[in-house]
Structures are given as C-alpha cells and as structure tokens.
Amino acid sequence: MKIDILSVVPALLESPFSHSILKRAKEKGLFEVNVINLRDFSTSKQKQVDDYQFGGGAGMVMMCQPLADAIDTLQQDQKYDEIIYMTPDGATFNQKIANRLSLKENLLIICGHYKGIDERIRQHYVTMEISIGDYVLSGGELAAAVVVDSIGRLIPGVLSNETSALFDSFQDNLLAPPVYTRPADFKGWKVPDVLLAGDPKKVDEWRTNQSIERTKERRPDLLED
C-alpha cells in the first residue's frame, strides 16, 4: 500500500512514521508513506498557500492553486483509490472505515490548516472526508497520522501476529476483553482461573462474554449498531 500526504508542515509527520510498527512495515516494503510539502507547488515567491476568505471574516483559507497543482501533478504518476481530506466536519473515523481503507492500494491525504481548504477543491478533487473527533486541531497532520497508523497495522505482514488485529476493540462492534500476563498472582490480584486452565474453547467463550459485558457497560451505542 502507498499513502501520499499533502502537508503545509511536513516536519510534524516525521516522527509518527519513523518508529515501531510502521517503521518495520516500511522497511519490509509492505507500506509506503510519502509526505509532500504543499508549499513546493506554490507559484508565489513567498511560497504562499493561503489567502483571505471572500466575504470577510476571521481566518485564512488554503488556496486552490497549490492544492490543485499538487494533486494534478501527483495524479500523473499515480491513480488514487481515494483522495481524503482531514476536516472536523468529515465522517467520524472508526474501525469500519479503517478496515475498508486498508484494502485500497493508493491513497492521498490532504491535511487542512487555517479555516480549511477552498470549497472548490472539496467539490472537484476530494472523494472522502474524515474527522477523528468532534474537536478542532491546529492542522490535519496529527489526524492524518492517526488514520495512517490505524490503516497500516491492518495490512497483512505488518503485525507479527496477523490475527491480533482481528481481536482489537471495535472489530464486530465490540470492545476487546480484559487481558492479563505474568505473574498469575500480583499483590494478591489473581488472573481468572479460566485463562489458566488450558481449555481454548472455554477461554474463547469467556473472552466473548467479557467483550459483550464490557461493551454494554462502556459503549452501549456500539451494540445498537
């Protein structure tokens, strides 16, 4: 899979993709992430990418020209399955969207800034809009990093144990069950006997029941879906 990211501040994305799972995935050739500086496509001497909004009002808007030129240039060499704009008013990101995007080959993510991007770019280029929650960040880079990390770990071969992602929270609309590791008795706090008995069927049943109960208690809205 290949993901290109258009950013005004590429340095914000250097760390998230240079460590841990995503770093290993890139080294294995399973996953490619390219962060592209939008200012490289500005035609002004000052590398300007924003301007005042028509009609007045506080806040700047990301201009059409740099974005359109960047997307047009990238599309000469790459056909994108989705052109995604990170924006607070997009669809709320969840595990189902992550699962669907992990099956794609090529994605382009646009990181918004200021008051957002010119509406004409949204109308004529963007195919998908994503929000990571009902709050506003100073830019779309951190939100893009969240989306990329969530997608990347689902790609076959990225995780050491490929079945691990299948039992994450929100798969099948359930929260993950409690997990334990050694020692079996810590300060008198003991691991449930069923996990120590060595019966895989009973362990599976216990985990399923725990997932259901935890979801009922903490996120009953998931069960409504």
Rank of each mutant, 00 (worst) to 15 (best):
D4V: 06
L6V: 09
V9I: 14
A11P: 09
L13I: 14
H19E: 14
H19C: 13
I21P: 03
A25H: 02
A25T: 00
K26V: 05
N37I: 10
F41S: 04
F41L: 09
S42I: 11
K47T: 12
K47W: 15
Q48M: 14
V49H: 09
D50S: 10
F54L: 09
G55T: 02
G57H: 05
A58S: 12
A58L: 14
M60H: 07
Q65K: 14
L67D: 11
I71D: 13
D72Q: 13
D72L: 12
T73D: 06
L74I: 12
Q78K: 15
D81H: 15
E82M: 04
D89S: 13
D89N: 15
A91R: 15
A91T: 15
A91E: 15
F93Q: 00
Q95G: 02
I97T: 00
I97V: 08
R100Y: 05
S102K: 02
L103Y: 09
L103R: 13
K104H: 14
K104I: 05
E105G: 01
N106D: 11
N106I: 01
N106W: 03
L108W: 06
I110L: 14
C111K: 10
Y114P: 04
Y114I: 01
G116S: 00
D118E: 04
E119S: 09
V126W: 05
V126C: 05
T127F: 08
T127A: 10
M128L: 15
M128F: 13
I130M: 00
I132P: 01
I132M: 00
G133Y: 01
Y135D: 01
Y135H: 09
G139C: 14
G140C: 00
E141G: 07
E141N: 07
E141H: 03
A143W: 00
A144E: 01
A144N: 08
A145L: 10
V146T: 15
V147H: 03
D149T: 04
G152N: 05
R153Y: 03
L154D: 02
I155F: 02
P156R: 07
V158T: 00
N161H: 06
T163Q: 12
A165I: 06
A165C: 08
L166I: 01
D168R: 01
Q171G: 01
D172C: 08
N173W: 11
L175M: 09
P178K: 04
V179Y: 03
T181Q: 11
T181I: 12
P183C: 04
K187N: 07
W189C: 11
W189L: 15
V191Y: 06
P192N: 04
D193N: 13
V194N: 13
L195M: 09
L195W: 03
L196W: 12
L196H: 11
A197V: 14
G198E: 06
P200S: 06
D204R: 10
E205P: 00
W206V: 02
R207V: 03
T208F: 10
N209R: 13
S211V: 04
S211A: 09
R214C: 03
K216D: 12
R218T: 04
D221Q: 00
D221I: 00
L222H: 01
